[in-house]
Design a binder for these strands. Structure first.
Lengths: 232, 232
DNA sequence: CGCGAGCTTGACGTTGTTCAACTAGAGTGG
DNA sequence: CCACTCTAGTTGAACAACGTCAAGCTCGCG
C-alpha cells in the first residue's frame, strides 16, 4: 500500500459527502481513495475540456463550476452550475471516451479526481452504486429536457426568469445571492445575448421584481417571477 | 410456469435483436420473457405519455416512433426518432417513476413491453447489462447536447438541414427516403414553425439541394446541405 | 492618471413567428 | 356519384422578437 489510512482521512471525508456514494463498502471507498488526486483549480480554469479524452470522475469538494457545451463561433450554452457535493461523470465513459461538454471553475474549486478505471471497477462490483449512477444520469437528463423546452418554446424574459429562479433555488438556495457568474455566463445560461440579458435584468429591476447590485441579487417578487417563467 | 419455451420463441427472437441485450444470460432473458407483453400500436397512438407513471421498458420490433417533449401551449420538441432495435428506458425508472417525455407511433408499431421490475432485477444481477444501459443513456444524452447547440446557436436553415441529414443518416439510412413524419413533426424536430419549415424546404428544393415530392425526399447536394448545417 | 475588461445603453436590421386565406386530397353520408 | 367537411400542406403579408454593432461607461489596477 502506498497510502496509509491516516494519510487519507481527509479524502475519506470527501468521498463520504457525495450523493450516491452511500452504498459503497469500505473496500470500494478504498478503491476510490487509492486512485484519487486532490486538485485545486483557480477561478476561470478549465476542469474538463469538450472533445478531450476523459480520464477522471470529478467530485467537487468546495466552490462552483459551470458545465457548458461549446457550439459554433465561440458561443456556448451553460447547462448546469455545480456546487459542493456534486460530481461529474463524463458521458463518454462507457462509449467513445471523450468529453461531450466542458466544465470550468467560476470560483476557486477544490476537487477530488477519481480515475475512470476505479470508477468502472466499482460500478461493476456494486449494483446499488450502479443504480445511483444511472439515477444521477437520469436527473441530468431531466435538466436537459427542461432546457430544451426552455429554448424552443419560451421567449427571453421567461428564460431569464428561469435562470434567476434556478440560481436562487437550486444553486445558492436563497432568495438573496451573490454570484460569480459574469453577465455573459448568465446570458449563456439563458441562451440569450449578453445585451438582451442586461436589458431584461434592468426591466425586472425597474418593475421591482428583483434587486440587482452588480453581482448581488435579491428576488423580491417570487410569484411574479415564477409566473413570467411559466407563461414564457 | 405460465409460459412454455415454445410459446415464447417469437419473443426470444425479439429480445435478441436489441442493442445491449447481448450480455444477457438465458435466465435473464427468461426474466424479461416472463414479464413481457407484445403490443401493437397504430400510427398516431401514444405509447408513452409524459407525466404518467412509467411502467414499461419499450422495445421496438418494427415501425417508427417519435420521442418528444411537450412544452407550453401544446407545442412540443421531437428529440429523436426511434426505429426497430431501439428501446426506451424512461428516465424516471430509478427516480420519480414518471415519464419525462412522450413517445408516439408514426407508423404502425410492434413492441415488446418489459416490466420495470424485471428490468430492475436484471440491471442489478448483470453488471455488463448495467453498463450497456448506462452507455445507452449516455448516447441519448449526447443527442440532447447536440440539440441544445442546434437550438441556441443555429438559425432555421441550419436546423432544417440538420433534420434532413439526421433523417437520412440516422433514421432511414439512405439518401432517398419516405417519411411518415408530418410537416409539423419535421418542424418540431427542427424547432421552427411549420410555415418556416415549409418555406425552407421550398428554398432547398428551388436551389436543387433536395428533391421533395410530398413525403418523399432525395438529398441531391449532400455537401451543400452539410455545409449549411455546419455554418448554421 | 490612464488603461483595459466587463458592463450598459441606444439604434438598427434581420430573423422567424403569427395570422389569414387558399389549396389539395381523403373520407363520409345522402 | 357528388357535394360536404376535415385535415394537412402551402403561400403571403405584417409584425414582434432578438441579435448585432457601435459607442460610452465604470471600476479596479498598474
Amino acid at each position: 500500500m502506498t497510502h496509509t489510512s491516516n494519510h487519507l482521512n481527509g479524502c475519506h471525508d470527501c468521498n463520504m459527502k457525495f450523493n450516491g456514494f452511500d452504498t459503497l463498502s469500505e473496500l470500494q471507498l478504498n478503491t476510490f481513495k487509492d486512485s484519487h488526486c486532490k486538485v485545486e483549480y483557480r477561478k476561470g480554469e478549465t476542469i474538463i475540456k469538450q472533445g478531450a479524452r476523459c480520464s477522471n470522475l470529478v467530485c467537487i469538494k468546495s466552490g462552483y463550476v459551470k458545465m457548458h457545451v461549446e457550439g459554433l463561433g465561440g458561443k456556448s450554452v451553460i447547462v448546469k452550475v455545480l456546487k459542493p457535493g456534486d460530481f461529474i461523470i463524463s458521458p463518454g465513459i462507457f462509449d467513445d471516451n471523450k468529453n461531450h461538454f466542458s466544465a470550468s471553475a467560476i470560483t476557486d474549486v477544490n476537487t477530488c479526481l477519481i480515475s475512470i478505471e476505479a470508477f468502472r471497477k466499482v460500478f461493476h462490483d456494486n449494483d446499488n452504486f450502479a443504480e445511483s449512477v444511472l439515477k444521477h444520469n437520469h436527473q441530468l437528463m431531466q435538466t436537459l429536457y427542461h432546457q430544451l423546452i426552455n429554448l424552443s418554446h419560451k421567449k427571453m424574459t421567461g428564460r431569464v426568469a428561469d435562470t434567476l429562479l434556478y440560481l436562487s433555488k437550486e444553486v445558492y438556495e436563497s432568495n438573496t445571492f451573490y454570484t460569480t457568474l459574469s453577465r455573459q455566463d448568465m446570458a449563456d445560461l439563458s441562451s440569450v445575448s449578453k445585451e438582451s440579458l442586461i436589458r431584461i435584468l434592468k426591466d425586472f429591476k425597474d418593475s421591482g421584481i428583483v434587486v440587482v447590485e452588480g453581482n448581488q441579487f435579491k428576488i423580491q417578487a417570487l410569484n411574479t417571477l415564477q409566473n413570467i417563467s411559466k407563461v414564457g
